[in-house]
Design a protein around this nucleic acid. Sequence first.
DNA 1: TACTAAGCTCTTTTT
DNA 2: GAGCTTAGTA
Length: 766
Amino acid sequence: MMQWPDQRPADDIPPFIDSLNPSQREAALNTDGPVMIIAGAGSGKTRVLTYRIAYIMHKGTDPFNILSLTFTNKAAKEMRTRIENLVGAEAKNLWMGTFHSVFARILRQEADKLGYPSNFTIYDSDDSKSLIKAILKEMQIDDKVYKPSLVLSRISLAKNNLMGAKDYLNNEELTNSDKAAGRPKFGEIFKQYTSRCFKAGAMDFDDILVNTYYLLNQHHDVLNKWQHRFKYIMVDEYQDTNHVQYMITKQLAAVHQNICVVGDDAQSIYAFRGANIQNILNYERDYPEVATFKLEQNYRSTKNIVNAASSLIKHNKHQLEKEVWTANEEGEKIKVSRNPSDSDEGRRVAQLIFEDKHHLHLPNKAFAILYRTNAQSRSIEEALRKQGIEYRIYGGISFYQRKEVKDMLAYLRLVINPQDEEALKRIINYPARGIGNTTITRLVYHANEKNISIWDVIKDIRKYPDIGASSAKVEQFGMLIDSFRSKDNSKNAYEIAVDVAKRSGMLKTLFDDKSPEGLSKYENITEFLNSVQEFVEDDENESEKTLPMFLENVALYTDEDRTNDPNRDCVSLMTIHASKGLEFPIVHIVGLEENLFPSQMALMNRNEIEEERRLFYVAITRAEQRLYLSFATSRFRHGNLLHCEPSRFLQEIDGKYLDIAANSMQAPSMAQRFHREPSVSSKQPLQKPKVYTTPRPTQPLPPVDPDFTSGDISQLAVGDRVQHQRFGTGTVVEMEGGGDNKKAKVLFDQVGHKTLVLKFAKMKII
DNA sequence: TACTAAGCTCTTTTT
DNA sequence: GAGCTTAGTA
């Protein structure tokens, strides 16, 4: 490590610095010039960063001149409170947040320079996707060939490399490769997408970054202003920055050159989103005079966990040299368990948590269950509920993603920015007001024809005779939105929201719907209104309490599910991606099966096995005291029962850190542990993995077997053995409902409990 | 135009 | 399983 003479007089160093170890201290005190901190997992990186900022403020820099960028709001929030504890309320004025939230804030101030309204809408991925779909439909392009998600990721990748639609169309290499791949229209779609977003006064997630770059690049006065503003810049999780983010920070730091990046190449897990690990690997090339500090001591986990993680990550070829070690105690071995099915896995995890909780006297919040995909939470949830353990899911479908809440948001977006095409299409006929698909298609047609927005067409509806009888309804809709808008200035966000909920008819429609779903939707709207009110009344941060600010918060702060009380003591369930930066005394990592983790997708695309391995590394290093790994030998996935092989990653961990037989329902002998074909080297081209499926309808449906036709099996009773076309054999455990609605709950031998509607169930009594 | 049942498709991670 | 499309009916 580089040695830096400490030239500051001792009395200038505030006492809080004393709690740092020598290498942390060096990293915190060297505030000027370019700095790179390579921070291993659990090495106290956040601590260093907070102390560093506190120290810069202590030396007299106005927090207003300090910019600190993170990847999650959680990280930003935590850092802010920690700094506040060190230096007091002044910390409120720091520029601290995610790339997206900080740059959106800057863009709001300067949007006019780019031709956007200052109240531009932020499109989330759903909006982007639905816009792509609409464009494909209008251009009469087959969305089987041009899958919206593929189109979108292609556009996103281009944008993140600072390539606009025009650059794309002018780039022969790209257009030729598109032609060769049979998808010559990518560029055209890209162009359409860009112009439609612009016309709608909307930016997607990528635009927030890209437009910030163009703003700084093309307007020297603006660049000058912000360059001088930010005397110190810090970037957390630098290994996950992409090209635009890199370019923006580089520009912003050009004047003062006080840029400090913190990261760990071993924890780079966002390449799929355009993150460029090269940014951290090449940092020293970009800033030759950089001071590099390595934090290698892990304070979080036991020796066993740290060593196991290192033994895994050694299999990656591309990485910076670094040796993570810990002075912590040896700890227990990592317990690995094999389970017959995903539901058994869930039950075991719930059981283990129950036992640990009581033996070790731990609260629920000491536990985390991590998985690769959101869909895996299901079986775990079920088991936890049965065991009576309170849990909480992070990520997944957040409150603001729910249909009814998104509908409300669409109204509010329209109030702010009526050009917003996606919002308009979403609610023009919700609640039903007699504006059907035909009418909407015509409105869109006219808008495109005249190159104006749909809203402009609505405002001038009488000029379009082909709308016919519906035009009165359309006009009424326009007036409704206008009537919300006129309140824009005199009312606050909460009052507008309540007005919208009532007069749009949404509240009444949901209130009248007495089904359980209707009830929960009604509650969600009420909860939503509460959240607006909270936002308005919250005086925590100083920013304005306007409706546009509220919407921006919703679009960029996807953190928490509002319906959960943050004070409840819960076990945490989340994807590994969401767990980054967190730590828990006891961690369970589930679903360690080949094709699930590492994911089939990741293997078939580029050579992403190393990223998957880093992901596993991140998961392991979340654990402080005790770690459990588990896999199932069969898993019910996408409606099919799949046979699963244990993940190759289990073999890659040095066996001396593992406790294989522990708690295994069918304790496998050492010889048969992880029996599988020799693992495929990451270099070798990967063939499509084998997928075994058990009773699955063969593709051309077999000639109808009369025994399996659905229909009346009214004589079915509890205790009967049945055979189902897909689920195999099982026993009826419960009958419910009557008439057409008669259902049977069956415990299937292979897939566990299923509830089947007799009228449709394809099964017979055996 | 609105609603429903049946059929078909796609299955990763997120700001 | 979920989300979406289609076809048929009210």
